[in-house]
Design a protein around this nucleic acid. Sequence first.
DNA 1: AAGGATAACTTGTCAGACAATCAGTCATCT
DNA 2: AGATGACTGATTGTCTGACAAGTTATCCTT
Lengths: 241, 241
Amino acid sequence: MQPIKKVRLSDSVIDAIEAMIDAEQLKPGDKIFSEHELTRRLQVSRASVREAIRILEVTGRVTVKHGKGVYLADYSASRFEPFVAWLQNNEQSLNDSFELRLIIEPDIAALAAQRAEETDIDELNTAHKYFTTCAADANTTEIIKSDRNFHRLLAGASKNRALSMLMHSITTSLPGDWISSLHTPGRIKKTITEHGEVLKAVTHSDSNQARHCMHSHLTNAWADIRNFMHQHTTTVGEPTL
Amino acid sequence: MQPIKKVRLSDSVIDAIEAMIDAEQLKPGDKIFSEHELTRRLQVSRASVREAIRILEVTGRVTVKHGKGVYLADYSASRFEPFVAWLQNNEQSLNDSFELRLIIEPDIAALAAQRAEETDIDELNTAHKYFTTCAADANTTEIIKSDRNFHRLLAGASKNRALSMLMHSITTSLPGDWISSLHTPGRIKKTITEHGEVLKAVTHSDSNQARHCMHSHLTNAWADIRNFMHQHTTTVGEPTL
DNA sequence: AAGGATAACTTGTCAGACAATCAGTCATCT
DNA sequence: AGATGACTGATTGTCTGACAAGTTATCCTT
């Protein structure tokens, strides 16, 4: 004999909510119906709705914000929150952030070479071209932005949402020293060629080459900064930006 | 400005219940306090108690039986049911985070092998021993905590604050993959030996070996999870436990 | 135009009530 | 005696209405 499975109401509500998400084509970050609206539509009490939402929350499908609403889980919100907070509140040392990027980004490039789709490569191409035109204008803030954008797009092409978000976090709050890398003489031109090589490898789906190119790109940038700083820090104390 | 983290009442209730379980030395299968009793003791509404219990249920810590009561989840019973469901819903993010860890942690281990000081190694040793004792008790929450702690200490030993914070963030905000890896049968024992090998390499300042050990540790854990998931999802109908 | 009070909407919590389920107890019927 | 069914108490499941607390946009005052 098969015992009859009695379904808890909140479990049915979970299914209903997921069906709604599916039907409405909601994407991560979108707001879903309010608890009140759900009670009205599903004709169940708010307690049951809340229990369902609580479950959806702990299983990571939605995030609940007091006073605002319930949102489809967004990686950016939950995952690296404490890390981002730390990045914003602490001036990192140049070495630390370089070491971190040197660990992550070559592998990102390798993954991107394996997984990038046509649209990704198109976007990377336009971003690269835009960087080149910016370099001609010598508009430094725009140059920094477009450099950032290139690295982010690459992370996106890795098709790993965690990596993508992580790179987004890292690039939003770069240490001042890092930004200054593009101020060192000749670095912008070098960046153009180095990005170009990475992009070429990704386009050819050459994973190892992509990893290698990104590695040397970062290593070169690091070396240029160190040289630059060394020249300009004969005075004792912190290097001035 | 440090934003004050407002804790949801049900979250506090969860902690309180777990503390009670700990204080009363309850074993799997034992009955815990009824909802009414919990409202009386904790002085919160039944709704909050119920939300807490619902969370404890989906995370597999307790099982609720209508008309009877709430019981500490026992190992033999269908403990894996919520876990498998979670795996299915989070397969993508599970893969993403393992890929991320597989990129970062081997290098962290390598750096730790180069830079760890005596105090770091001492801490890692005690953490490793504590994990071993926890494993004997089969206290899953504590096991997860101590596993987490080992990985964090290792990141700390890398002497790179950005990396350390990143690992801290990953281990806190992603209970999922951590919890899941230690739920698969036999994984805890394997973790003990694998952590031991990493620790040995770090102690000997063998950077390459440390990288290699961490790499296989994560690879093995990931493979175990995939096997487990595959076993429990390929059979048609209800998987027999 | 700037800034502050206000109102509307949202989630968080509470209290009390009733329904549904379970496990005994006990009287009743065969 | 043994099976059956009604009753009872405990426990979880659900509902309702209310208020607290956070967020946002608007309107009003200055």
